[in-house]
């Protein structure tokens, strides 16, 4: 049924968009491996991409394949061992960079070739609406006096390391409260059971819009259009330029260059579709695009940042 609809849609759209790729790739369906359960952020964004992307390619389609387990490591390992022919694409998140060190994953970041990036989600400092802290200055100043209780998704997650990075550049003290699942974290913050939280902007944005939580600072090099009053970390006196998790595509090492280019082009054309941009923004994810080369730079930068934190805080396994 799903296939039939997608096929019908691709037939209808093919005429409008025109032939996408001249090469013989893809000759069969491409699996987009999502190493998490359906319904999460990576799954949702992947499905939004695939919906548009399937209208842009001919003769084959992208299928989202969920291989959840082990906090993403099971699916990521599966993708790292797949045939390097471009028919297995990994929905890659920043955890691929840190999992080998933190969770003992058997692959290394060099086993993947970056294809393109489609979402960059900066870390934000969030406090409950009832919190006494109105600005990041007050927040950091209070954290210098006595440790603040900060909700995070888990030890060794990107936002936990972001918190450790804040501790390094300021003299703030945080007491981390690892809480599984965003729902439970939201409950702790809305209910005022903790002093604050470190969240991705994408998740925090919807709740900040209803004033149930307040965003104090955003770990990005520029202010976000939706929150023009929220300062960046550097404006707020926290000397960190960018701390963001990313979502993108990668393929196993050894995949031919022209196939990578073709996939990267597909992601770019998807990004250029207005319908796609609208849908991604509505779902709470800011659509961006970086090609393989600049995605590689982002990955390398993240690897350097996190490996320092991991070494210094003894998180490594």
């Amino acid at each position: 049924m799903k296939k039939a609809i997608a096929l019908l849609a691709s037939c209808l759209m093919a005429g409008a968009v025109g032939a996408a790729a001249a090469a013989d790739f893809p000759a069969k369906d491409i699996d987009l491996i999502v190493p998490f359960a359906p319904g999460g952020g990576v799954d949702t964004t992947s499905r939004i991409i695939v919906e548009t992307a399937n209208t842009l390619i001919e003769g084959a389609e992208l299928n989202v394949v969920n291989r959840a387990g082990g906090g993403g490591v099971v699916g990521q390992t599966f993708a790292s061992k797949a045939a390097p022919d471009g028919y297995t694409v990994l929905a890659m998140t920043s955890s691929v960079v840190t999992n080998p060190k933190l969770k003992g994953a058997s692959y290394s970041i060099d086993d993947f070739l970056p294809v393109g990036l489609y979402n960059l989600d900066p870390s934000v400092i969030v406090v409950p609406a009832s919190s006494p802290f109105e600005t990041a200055d007050q927040f950091i100043a209070a954290a210098k006096q006595a440790p603040l209780n900060i909700v995070i998704a888990g030890i060794g997650t990107s936002h936990h390391m972001g918190g450790l990075a804040i501790q390094q550049v300021t003299d703030a003290q945080f007491n981390y409260i690892p809480t599984k699942g965003f729902g439970q974290q939201l409950q702790a913050v809305l209910g005022g059971h903790a002093d604050g939280a470190l969240w991705p902007l994408g998740e925090a944005a919807n709740h900040a819009k209803t004033d149930s939580v307040r965003i104090l600072a955003i770990a990005s090099d520029a202010r976000d259009e939706a929150f023009p009053d929220v300062p960046t970390y550097q404006e707020a006196g926290i000397d960190i330029e960018i701390w963001a998790t990313f979502r993108g595509w990668s393929v196993p090492k050894g995949t031919p260059d022209d196939v990578v280019t073709m996939l990267s082009g597909l992601l770019q054309k998807t990004y250029e579709s207005p319908a796609y941009k609208k849908k991604m923004s509505e779902a709470g994810y800011k659509p961006v695009f970086r090609d393989a080369k600049s995605f590689k730079q982002i990955i390398d930068g993240y690897a350097v940042l996190t490996s320092n934190i991991i070494e210094e805080s003894g998180l490594a396994k």
Partner: peptide, 22 residues
Amino acid sequence: LGIPGNSTSALFIGALAIHGMV
């Protein structure tokens, strides 16, 4: 509030997100 009561109701978040709703 946007807080799922259990794992099944959490999947409603996914279904809503796909249609651009939170």
